[in-house]
């Protein structure tokens, strides 16, 4: 899933400081699952914003909606009837949401309430970790389903760098060196030889480096 964190209150307040009436829109997709943009978080942020505005001696009206997904125009369309009643719309979806909203309602001012972080999963309740960088050409079958593209700070494909120490990456003691894990797993499975295989240069054009991407599945296109 896409994992996001909520922006700081200061940042959100700054974005909406000129508005008196906003629509706060949650999303029932990934951001509900990662406890940051579902109906509960919408209610919580709504309340926080109102309290913060009250502290300034001004009033803020917030209406709360949570739609199925902000990354589908059909769901976004459900907001059309109401959207003109507001000075601005604050989206609690991943980065896709505000953009779909902006495309659907070009005259409306749309703001993101979340920082979209990565593709990952919950390793325990409240802790999410990155697992995929969306590079467009999956190589994890070479590495026992451990992705050095997403999980190595340098996206190295041929083993650890000199910054690997005691299983940790030099960037932080909290970050595991994925290469340490890959090598150990290969050793356990007695397949260390696999790593002698030279890998061709990765074609980064399928990743972000190739510019904005698009996926067209002809058979589905009507």
């Amino acid at each position: 899933m896409i994992v996001a964190d909520r922006k700081s209150l200061d940042e959100i307040q700054e974005m909406i400081k000129d508005y008196k009436k906003i629509l706060l829109v949650g999303c029932k997709g990934c951001v509900t699952v990662c406890n940051v943009g579902g109906m509960k978080e919408v209610q919580v942020l709504s309340s926080i914003l109102k309290i913060a505005r009250k502290k300034e001696g001004r009033e803020l009206q917030v209406e709360e909606r949570t739609i199925e997904r902000q990354c589908d125009f059909e769901y976004v369309e459900q907001l059309r009837a109401d959207c003109d009643r507001f000075d601005a719309i604050l989206s609690m979806a991943c980065g896709v949401g505000p953009q779909f909203l902006a495309e659907a309602f070009p005259s409306q001012k749309i703001y993101p309430a979340l920082d979209t972080k990565f593709f990952g999963g919950a390793v325990q309740h409240g802790i999410w970790e990155e697992r995929c960088a969306g590079c467009g050409t999956c190589v994890i079958h070479f590495y026992d389903s451990l992705c050095p593209i997403a999980r190595c700070a340098k996206s190295l494909q041929h083993g650890p760098c000199g910054g690997s120490a005691n299983g940790k990456c030099e960037i932080s003691e909290d970050v595991d060196c994925i290469w340490d894990i890959i090598v150990r797993k290969k050793m356990e499975q007695e397949r260390l030889e696999d790593l002698r295989t030279y890998r061709a240069f990765k074609d980064w054009r399928s990743a972000r480096d190739g510019g904005p991407r698009k996926s067209i599945r002809e058979e589905l296109v009507q």
Binding site: K28, G29, T32, V33, C34, N35, G38, M39, A122, Q124, H125
Partner: peptide
């Protein structure tokens, strides 16, 4: 209808 099957309840 509201459940996202997010596992929050299961985990807490």
């Amino acid at each position: 209808a509201r459940c996202a099957a997010c596992l929050t309840c299961v985990r807490t």
